[in-house]
């Protein structure tokens, strides 16, 4: 080892040869020419993160929830983030993953809203969930093809052009899929099975009342708070519904309800004192 105070800690050149800066992108003291030899690197992980977004369809619309926490690794860094974004008058976009990318997506969506809903609008032509979803999926996929993804998983909820409930997922890879029960991140493991107990097949949402859907969603948020160390017990919830007669194309009386600062109710931590280690051993 080199003991010169200005090069302390470096392997001595006599023994190991000159230091190679290319190893693991170890330093930014590289020459321009050396940079060309190294692949260009974009973000490799999210920084501040939001955890699961959970959502499901019901008879008259959709319901979606996400907590208000922003984690910096395992540090609970922010407790007042809003991750459910309203786009246009009848669409919600729930975002998990990197928070700064969430904010970028939020700005993109607001720009979309202005372009589509405000410019030269002489009525009609509303921006609806399928349009927002398609647009977002193009943006996320485009970023991933540049190897510079927006590090998020997103659920878009609202109504189809024909007025039926719409729910669809997109993630940082540009993958999209749809289901009557959707969740991102930890929620896709913990919440989806609970949601599927209510809606076993996609078509079954047509028999579900709003209060049933809400009850299950609240339960999901509770289970996630128990089991997901990056979840908080404070969350927001959006319900979008239309009281339309079946078969009619235009939704009547459309309502968008955004509730904030909801708390996970009915917690019981009695079991906690019995857990030791990783929880496999019960005292």
């Amino acid at each position: 080892m080199n003991h010169d105070p200005f090069h302390w800690g470096r392997p001595s050149q006599e023994t190991y040869g000159g230091y190679n800066y290319n190893i693991a992108n170890a330093s930014n003291h590289q020459q321009e020419s050396q940079l060309d030899n190294f692949p260009k690197v974009h973000s490799q992980q999210p920084i501040i993160t939001g955890t699961s977004v959970v959502s499901l369809k019901f008879k008259h619309g959709i319901i979606m929830a996400a907590d208000n926490l922003g984690s910096y690794g395992s540090l609970l860094r922010f407790n007042n983030l809003e991750r459910l974004i309203k786009v246009g008058s009848q669409t919600v976009v729930g975002i998990s993953g990197d928070i700064s990318d969430l904010q970028q997506i939020e700005r993109i969506l607001h720009e979309l809203e202005i372009e589509q809903e405000i410019y030269d609008s002489d009525g009609g032509h509303h921006l609806r969930a399928p349009h927002v979803h398609e647009y977002l999926s193009k943006i996320l996929y485009n970023r991933r093809t540049k190897m510079d993804p927006l590090w998020n998983a997103v659920i878009v909820g609202g109504f189809n052009d024909d007025g039926t409930p719409f729910l669809k997922y997109i993630d940082l890879l540009g993958v999209t899929y749809t289901s009557s029960t959707l969740a991102t991140g930890f929620g896709s493991h913990l919440a989806v099975p609970l949601l599927r107990q209510l809606i076993p097949n996609d078509i079954d949402y047509e028999n579900i009342e709003e209060d049933e859907a809400r009850k299950v969603l609240e339960n999901c948020m509770r289970v996630l708070f128990y089991r997901d160390a990056r979840a908080s017990d404070k969350y927001s919830l959006v319900t979008i519904k239309s009281e339309s007669n079946e078969g009619e194309s235009t939704p009547k009386k459309l309502s968008y309800n955004h509730e904030t600062e909801l708390k996970v109710e009915g917690q019981s931590w009695k079991f906690a004192k019995d857990i030791s280690g990783y929880g496999s051993k019960q005292l």
Binding site: D120, H125, P130, H131, H133, E134, Y135, K138
Partner: peptide
Amino acid sequence: MIYNRPLSTSKAVL
């Protein structure tokens, strides 16, 4: 392609 939506006539003419 981008919006999964047919172009509105007014947007087209403008």
